[in-house]
Design a protein around this nucleic acid. Structure first.
Lengths: 343, 343
DNA sequence: CTGAAAGCGCTTACAG
DNA sequence: CTGAAAGCGCTTACAG
């Protein structure tokens, strides 16, 4: 099977010729049918039909200088977190006539740079970036206002001054701490990761602040660094439970690590939540399906994408937007947390 | 914060003027530096640099009639199955200088039609469709050869004659049956779904063929229809275990339903795999993380996307491609299957 | 190796 | 409500 060349496509000139009018009239008719006489509409429709005519998007984009395309940069679209985020974007984009180009960066600066290059070359009208750091070359371009298209960042820590849509990590960790404190817990452990990011630091610090304010003690030994994977959660649980002050409640930076913690606790003979309570973060799909179902902080991933996209499209429409949008999280209480035991 | 208009962008004419040469030379230099003198290269680089010049992609796309963009149509990018498939596509596309536009159809014909319309209008150079059925309007266009761009389908049952990349469902179900038979199982249950699709039918029929050929009995009562969700797997398990001939092995059409089956079996007091063995399909991420880890058929999702994209790009390059590519699956034996007990 | 010129398929002031 | 005309920013035979 080989590529058969498509027949030469009809252009607006062909339609104009068949319909017996100027290309300007055809163009108008196609763009705004109400601006022409019914008779004109009829003739254009007839001619277009007979020729199988379709507008050429590339010509329109070029001529109008608008591609009606936005680009989304995420570290890994196969991560459910980002795919839900993406769906929120797509929803808002489609509604306003935009289509979404996806840039999967794999957290790789080379790929990021490649995608930024495409943005700079005018492949899209705007960019939503949910990445760690902006490559410095483009951060410079953006701040000089010479990238040519607006940018919205979903990471306030990306090292650049652009409109932001982010999650309230401070409030989230407060919710987790309050929940565990109200269950009577006083000995805590944390499984952290990516501490170079402000988001991670905020959660950690906010949690410690809340528990110490409530009179619980805290020592940095009770903080184990993982790498967001289930396996690193298991290792962290093992370390935490072999400490002097065995925690009765563990707060993990994400659900995957929380699941690893639960797995390992059970393997070590602890029951969750009877012996140890565990709180995750994100509320990924498996959090609810997992057994015991995970208590976690629901990050509104879809709304997050939606809000970022609306902000970008507003920018494209020349409307003014707030420099920073902060989204709250929701504590979802399931089976992995329960009253503290005292032994 | 409002949208500040970017400064007017330099064009190739500006560069030509500054560099003191024709736009043709600038264009050549940018496209193929080796075709001009070093002195010309230097002058162009200097002028471009001083103006902050960047090529305008929309103009190039329009002029050359190539957008170097392909579109991928999937039912749900938030489904890990499709996001891995997508990554395989993106990988192949990027390597050959293409970028990927994503169309998330939600299995909604209205959205499908919208995306097909974009394809038809020339927004992309080609299409990879992993959807149920092609909207008839576009199936007609494609078969008449007037869509204008090549299409690769990943569903042989999509109701259209285009090059295909698909998975060998017959072989997959044979592998599952052989595995269970070799463990001594003779009483089987199946959890199926989407039986209007040939893929689903093939798996079901191949499985029944394999077990009856081996002497096991089969009755259609042992086939419960679900809807791919965990919840429907739970319901199916309950029905299967309340049948006269309680199965000792259950084959589910996908991992999510298999997980539901396991959950419900455990809730009913059965042990997996000691009392009942369960085989899933797909090998999604959670299949391995689940406890007991799921025995399942690994669909090579990433390679699938990769193969589809390579086929499309070959078509775009005018190379001849095979009409149908069939990918094998791999049986991944984990903890949810074991020797049949006899009671 | 370089330049003059045509043209890709539209849209959009401008004039009527 | 319609037409003539210019032009968006490039690329590419063609000629030299």
């Amino acid at each position: 099977m080989s590529n058969t060349l498509p027949p030469a496509r009809a252009t607006i000139r062909d339609v104009a010729r068949i319909a017996g009018m100027s290309t300007a009239s055809v163009s108008r008719t196609l763009k705004d049918p109400d601006s022409v006489r019914p008779e004109t509409r009829r003739k254009v429709a007839e001619a277009a039909q007979s020729l199988g005519y379709r507008l050429n998007r590339m010509a329109i984009d070029f001529r109008t200088g608008r591609s009606h395309t936005i680009m989304v940069l995420v570290p890994n679209i196969a991560n459910p977190f980002y795919s839900a985020f993406f769906k929120g974007i797509e929803e808002a984009a489609l509604e306003r006539g935009y289509i979404v180009l996806i840039g999967d960066t794999d957290d790789d600066e080379f790929r990021e740079t490649g995608y930024f290059g495409m943005v700079a070359s005018g492949r899209c009208d705007g960019l939503i970036a949910h990445i760690g750091k902006f490559p410095s070359e483009f951060a410079t371009l953006i701040e000089a206002g010479t990238l040519g298209v607006p940018v919205v960042s979903c990471n306030p820590d990306a090292g650049i001054e652009v409109p932001t849509v982010r999650v309230d990590n401070y409030q989230a960790a407060q919710l987790a701490a309050e929940h565990l404190l109200s269950l009577g817990h006083r000995r805590f452990g944390q499984v952290v990761a990516f501490m170079q990011y402000r988001d991670s630091q905020t959660r950690r610090t906010s949690f410690v602040e809340a528990i110490t304010k409530a009179g619980a003690s805290w020592s940095d030994e009770m903080e184990i660094a993982g790498d967001l994977t289930i396996a690193s959660g298991r290792a962290a649980a093992r370390k935490l439970m072999s400490s002097k002050t065995k925690p009765t409640a563990i707060f993990a930076l994400n659900d995957e690590m929380a699941i690893g913690v639960v797995h390992e606790l059970e393997a070590m003979g602890y029951r969750v939540p009877q012996d140890v309570s565990v709180v995750g973060f994100d509320d990924v799909d498996i959090a609810g399906a997992f057994s015991p179902a995970l208590t976690t902080l629901r990050v509104p991933r879809r709304s997050w994408g939606n809000a970022a996209c609306v902000k970008l499209l507003d920018l494209l429409d020349g409307r003014s937007v707030s420099a920073d949008t902060v989204l709250g999280t929701e504590l979802v209480i399931r089976e992995s947390t329960g009253p503290a035991h005292n032994r």
